[in-house]
Design a protein around this nucleic acid. Structure first.
Lengths: 245, 245
DNA sequence: CGTTTCGTTGATATTAATCAACGAGCGTGG
DNA sequence: CCACGCTCGTTGATTAATATCAACGAAACG
């Protein structure tokens, strides 16, 4: 089964040509790891950073490969994928603007990261970043805060996967995704969903069909409206209540 | 339904009377957070530490409560519990000797911790510990390593909960638990399981009955033998293969 | 020594998975 | 430009895995 064409799946990231991005003038700075850095540190950081654009379906890095880079996401959506040998897939997270990849500073990536839509990232050589973290405790502290937040979120996800039914899972996904988007944009009730039903299913431990049916059910009950590439929450409170379980 | 008697559920920890534990002479030191500390730092650490013993079913701390202490486990097994409002329960982890609780340095505990059997812990006031971490980057670095390892493990658990069947879940639990025990004791094929079937079920996102049936099935297939308060692996390799999925 | 808890096993129910079909949208190439 | 193939999402019918309900024996406990 041919899944992707050579062009779109090319692992080679594109360098954006238009204008030169800069850490100091970066608008997503305060949302990202860079919020921990002072102005002079930002200048230093800027020396390390490589700006890259990954087209849809391209791979940022592969599970098990040497973790030569860490990443800060500037734009787009990235799925974080774990595979079983027989093809079963679990998505352990979606990274969006402001998110950091490689927070564990591990020597090898523990999941594969694939662009869902066009993703722009700051790519930082692992070694340089780690050196900087070792020299600047407040950066390490920020890194630890990020890891702690992710650990907390992964516990939420364990509750979801272990104990919630399909409807609760989908509702929880919508609310959690909305909350994350709200932090980095002005999204409130209309939630863009660039990822496929298959991605959502593999994130929620369900099948495509169950996700589709559940979304249809929520729509039938007038809790949401399905819009192109997303959903709109008609009754966010009741969705949130459902999500809680 | 009276679950526990006043005596055993009393939240008040006991102070061990026999001999005075000491961080410098502590035998589990190299397994724990303390591995990051130098000798003089250990002395300093010892000033902060309160040694406490928690009887079975007693609560170390409650989800949502102010995180006044962090903990290092010296002995015993502790279950880390998340509850839904309707009583559904998800155990997000079991802490054993060498494990650290409160790794996120969060202001409020994000789960409840309950002793499964008699648990001995080093309890450290949050504030003092955090101050020390802020002053000693290598301690913070160690903390971050621990958090990263836990994050990795929680991703494994997401794969388990989202995509593995009952047999794979039980096998994975046995192998993972064995590996953790092996790091801190000489356990290899006979795995002590102080936690109840109910605990295992709530950890694996299954019911008591399914856990029981699955263990019986593995025993019937001569992959394990059920022993009092544990199991013995007859064919660790095949169990491990099952666990992988 | 009764009572309760725990683990096990059996019978049945239920949820979500699987199998299947179909239409819309999209890109490709005739 | 249109036809074709492909992917994607949706919906329906059926199956399968696990949950639920129920009963029981053994061990633990007061």
């Amino acid at each position: 089964m041919p899944v992707v064409t050579r062009e779109e799946a090319s692992a080679a990231p594109r360098k954006p040509a238009e204008h030169i991005p800069n850490c100091v003038t970066c608008k997503t700075r305060h949302l990202s790891i860079c919020a921990a850095l002072s102005s002079p540190e930002l200048v230093m950081f800027d020396q390390l950073v490589q700006h890259r654009e990954f087209p849809p379906k391209s791979v940022l890095f592969e599970q098990g490969a040497a973790a030569d880079f860490v990443f800060s996401v500037s734009e787009g959506t990235i799925r974080l994928v774990r595979l079983l040998s027989d093809g079963r897939r679990q998505i352990v997270g979606f990274a969006i603007k402001g998110d950091f990849l490689g927070v564990g500073l591990e020597s090898h990536y523990e999941f594969t990261a694939e662009a869902v839509d066009t993703a722009r990232v700051c790519r930082i050589p692992h070694h340089g970043f780690e050196t900087m973290a070792d020299e600047k405790p407040h950066l390490l502290r920020k890194l630890h805060e990020i890891a702690s937040r992710e650990l907390h979120h992964s516990h939420d996800q364990m509750v979801l996967l272990g104990r919630k039914n399909a409807e609760e899972r989908v509702a929880a996904f919508l609310i959690s995704h909305r909350d994350r988007l709200a932090r980095v944009s002005n999204c409130t009730v209309t939630i863009p969903l660039p990822m496929s039903r298959s991605d959502i299913a593999d994130y929620l431990g369900l099948t495509i069909e169950t996700v589709s049916r559940t979304i249809s059910k929520l729509a039938r009950e007038k809790l949401i409206v399905v819009v192109p590439d997303g959903v709109r929450l008609l009754d966010p409170d009741r969705i949130a209540a459902l999500a809680r379980g």
